[in-house]
Amino acid sequence: MALPPNAASASVLRSLRSEGVRVSSVSDGIGVLDAVRSGEPALLVLDVELPGPDQAAVLAAVHSEAPNIPVIAVTPRERRAGLLGQLRGDRDDYLLRPFAVDELSARIRLRLRLGAATAQTIPIVRMGDLTVDTEFGEVIVDGQPVALSPTEFSLLVALLAEPGAVVSHEKLAKQVWSEPASANLVQVYISYLRRKIGPERIRTVRGVGYILEG
């Protein structure tokens, strides 16, 4: 795993290494590409303001040369909109600067776990007029492509894993955020997801959780 210098704090390194994760740090875009080409890290944390080549080109090169490597992009808020179009739904994620060390650590653990799980699942899942390609992060609703954020996509995949069954707030929080999250946070992202795939597809079971229906 490669980390940019400003993200590779002693706290992050200690946290990840305590979990048996090997971490290396690079100082510019050329170093990112060299790391990817020489060792194919399990995950890449990419600072969009690293010196060197334009980071849009670096990210495109990583996706092209090492498509199986998930990317967590670290970005200032003003560059977020341009970055989102480059990220792949289920494989990539982003973090706004400034961020908490434990949040980065949680995002890394989540991406690594989702990557391992995706390799063991059927890549294309269909439920009524909803089609989800878990390999490429594509969602089709009523024949039309729908753009989801990485968190929204992870939430949809968690619901798809148990179609027609109630998935609790706690289980969704653990799968999507890799740690306990408030029921209110889950509810907020459920509302985002409903706006994009249709409110009728997700039913609320008050006080329990949510059901994905066809």
Rank of each mutant, 00 (worst) to 15 (best):
R109N: 10
G198P: 08
A10W: 04
A106R: 11
L212S: 02
G214E: 07
R37S: 14
I30F: 05
R126G: 10
P150M: 02
A181Q: 11
Q187R: 13
V12A: 02
E19I: 06
E138R: 10
E78H: 08
Y192L: 11
L3C: 11
P4V: 07
A66T: 08
P67G: 01
V186M: 09
E179P: 01
L172A: 01
V23C: 10
I202E: 02
P98Q: 04
V36L: 10
R206A: 08
R206K: 07
D102S: 10
A158I: 07
V125H: 09
L114Y: 04
R88G: 01
Y189M: 04
A8Y: 01
A10N: 10
V186N: 02
G198N: 07
L160D: 02
S11D: 06
P70D: 01
E49P: 03
D133K: 03
E49R: 08
L130C: 05
P51C: 02
G89H: 00
P163W: 09
V205N: 05
P145I: 10
G115Y: 06
E78N: 14
V74L: 10
F153Y: 08
E65F: 06
Y189L: 05
K196Y: 07
L159F: 03
D28Q: 08
N68K: 13
L112K: 03
L3I: 11
L193R: 00
T121H: 13
P51Y: 04
T204D: 03
A158N: 01
D133H: 06
R113W: 06
V23D: 04
V101F: 11
S154A: 15
A147F: 14
L83F: 09
L13E: 05
D129I: 00
A81H: 12
R126E: 15
P98L: 11
A106I: 12
V188A: 05
S15Y: 10
L87E: 05
A8I: 00
M127Q: 11
L212M: 01
V139F: 05
K196V: 07
G207R: 14
V62H: 00
A2N: 08
V36D: 04
V208W: 15
A56K: 15
F153E: 03
I30T: 12
A181C: 03
D90W: 10
G198I: 15
S25A: 14
P163I: 07
D90M: 14
L46G: 00
V71F: 02
Q187I: 06
A60Q: 11
I72E: 02
V205Q: 13
N184F: 12
G209R: 03
V101S: 08
D133Y: 02
E19R: 05
L130I: 10
F136R: 15
R201P: 08
G209Y: 09
I140H: 13
P123S: 05
G89T: 01
S105E: 09
E170Y: 05
V167T: 08
S9F: 08
L155T: 04
T134S: 13
R206G: 06
L83Y: 05
